[in-house]
């Protein structure tokens, strides 16, 4: 009787375990929800950093006076990744510049596409295909007044039960003419990973 119960239990368990474990299903998720898959720099960190830096910049009194009567022209210098991971820092600066641009307070020049723009202007002038009277003129672009630049650094610590990562992101706005740093801010992220003994 007891053996029968035991065998049935074991059999059922095996079936259940096998039934539950071997499914893989693809679903769409929320791209903006907090993601805690692992401790590395993730989408939530990127979104948090970009949103906080943009908010801080747009709220600062200095920027209030700069953008009162005009939309200053900025360019973004690459962020320096000083962390121990590979992080696409261009993705962070892209998010920040997109948010700033969409706020309607700033304008940007894109240093990453200068060669492509030059190529196009060259084609218009030397390609022999474009009506010379309608070709765009060289030397009419507007120069950036301000430069955004920053650093991303991390401190990683771990022992056998726990790992902890701390990110610090610093962003600065420099007036290119005077060389003065007009605004700066930093934001921090702490993430920990610990083993849990019980959990379902």
């Amino acid at each position: 009787m007891n053996k029968l119960a035991l065998v049935t239990t074991l059999g059922l368990t095996l079936v259940l375990a096998a039934g539950c474990a071997n499914k893989s299903v693809v679903r769409y998720g929320d791209a903006t929800a907090v993601e805690t898959t692992d401790i590395n720099f993730g989408s939530t960190d990127l979104q948090k950093v970009a949103a906080e830096m943009t908010d801080s910049l747009l709220l600062s009194p200095v920027v209030g006076t700069l953008t009162q009567n005009s939309r200053p022209v900025m360019f973004v210098e690459r962020l320096k990744n000083k962390t121990s991971e590979h992080i696409d820092t261009e993705s962070i600066t892209d998010s920040i510049s997109t948010k700033l641009l969409r706020s309607g307070k700033f304008r940007f020049v894109d240093m990453g596409r200068v060669d492509a723009a030059r190529e196009q202007l060259k084609f218009q002038h030397d390609g022999g295909m474009v009506d010379p009277s309608k070709a765009l003129q060289f030397g009419r672009q507007i120069g950036a007044q301000y430069m955004l630049y920053g650093n991303l650094s991390s401190i990683v610590k771990s022992n056998q039960d726990k790992s902890d990562v701390y990110y610090k992101f610093t962003l600065r706005l420099m007036d290119l003419e005077s060389g003065l740093v007009e605004w700066a801010d930093e934001t921090e992220i702490r993430k920990t990973k610990a083993k849990e003994s019980v959990g379902w």
Binding site: T32, A33, V34
Partner: peptide, 10 residues
């Protein structure tokens, strides 16, 4: 405005 672009913050 800016639907689904404002992230959830932890």
């Amino acid at each position: 405005i800016e639907a689904r672009k404002t992230p959830w913050k932890p």
